[in-house]
């Protein structure tokens, strides 16, 4: 298989460094991975190409990069599945993190965020002599998160980090969930209240847009976004409802539970909080402009037909009766 590998290169040591494209022709076996192609280029053609790689079996997390525009592991991607109609594969460094050289990016931002979530078990009670007793299900569940190899693919493609580097991001939040969901962490009921209190702060769990990029990018099935959603659920269950995000979710359920459909006019009011005057005013310019263009949501919101059935469902499933 004759393939062209088109690589986004960057040499910081030239005057006025700028990234540029370089094409490498390379002959590959049918089963070769993208990493095999890159190693072949490096070993046989051009030793100046810098990249990180090590295990070749998706466990060390070194070779995350953008392959045809999306982050993933070069060692987990078959070259044959990555070529386009012209037998070309487009390789770029991971996003969000600054490029050091070629495909090597600076991971400081990544590790700083991991450190921020105090990523180590913090049990509050007495440590047992033998192992902690815990269900296999709870450990299997955690293992699906600890399967994270810290490759940075999710961070590379995170839509929020792209515009706001202060966001904790998918990897660190999934790491945090690994502890909040651990029955050994936190109090005797396994509730990690202090962690959750930190994570509901701005830049934390509520800043995720639920775009799903991290889920698509993750090579290990960690599903960071689902973990962030689970964190939100944990936070609300722990009584941490005093954030725009929590109010947004609760308001949403309230409105749908009342009228069966969404009333966008009401949502910001409820989410920002009726007493939050500056917050409400911030929505005004848009609202006023929308009114003048005749596209403001009708202020009198009509209920769906037979809304009582939906109300009943919402009431029952939101506040299940005690057995």
């Amino acid at each position: 298989m004759d393939v062209t590998v088109r690589i986004r290169r960057y040499d910081p040591e030239v005057e006025n460094p700028e990234s540029y494209w370089q094409d490498y022709p390379v002959a590959l076996d049918g089963s070769a991975t993208v990493l095999d192609a890159l190693i072949k280029i490096r070993e046989e053609q051009d030793g100046t190409l810098s990249l990180r790689c090590s295990c070749r079996s998706s466990i060390c997390g070194s070779c995350a990069m953008r392959i045809n525009g999306h982050a993933g592991l070069a060692c987990k991607t078959q070259a044959a599945s990555a070529i386009d109609g012209n037998n070309t594969i487009v390789i770029e460094p991971a996003g969000v993190m600054p490029v050091v050289k070629d495909l090597v990016v600076d991971f400081s931002l990544f590790w700083d965020k991991i450190r921020q979530v105090e990523p180590y078990l913090q049990p509050q009670g007495e440590q047992p002599e033998a192992e902690y007793i815990a269900s296999n299900e709870s450990m299997l569940h955690l293992s699906s998160v600890t399967a994270c190899i810290m490759c940075g693919s999710c961070v590379s493609d995170c839509t929020v980090l792209e515009v706001d580097p202060t966001f904790l991001g998918p990897a660190a939040l999934a790491k945090a969930y690994r502890f909040t969901a651990d029955p050994r962490d936190g109090d005797s009921n396994g509730v990690s209240q202090e962690r959750l209190e930190q994570l509901v702060e701005p830049t934390g769990m509520w800043d995720c847009t639920r775009c799903g990029e991290c889920v698509a990018a993750c090579p290990k099935g960690v599903d960071p976004m689902d973990r962030i959603m689970a964190l939100r659920d944990q936070a609300m269950s722990a009584g941490l409802n005093n954030s725009n995000g929590a109010r947004h979710a609760e308001a949403f359920v309230d409105i749908v539970g009342h009228s069966g459909s969404l009333n966008e006019a009401l949502l910001p009011v409820k989410a920002v909080g009726i007493t939050n005057v500056p917050g409400l005013i911030s929505f005004l310019p848009v609202g006023l402009r929308a009114l003048t263009h005749g596209k403001m949501p009708p202020l009198i919101h009509h209920n769906i037909e037979n809304v009582k059935n939906v109300r009943k469902l919402v009431k029952k499933l939101e506040d299940p009766p005690l057995d």
Binding site: E162, P202, W206, C211, N244
Partner: peptide
Amino acid sequence: RCCGFPILTINETNSVAMVAK
């Protein structure tokens, strides 16, 4: 990618930054 709508009421600055981008 994401338009930013889901976090409009939560982090308007970021939401609007996505629109701008």
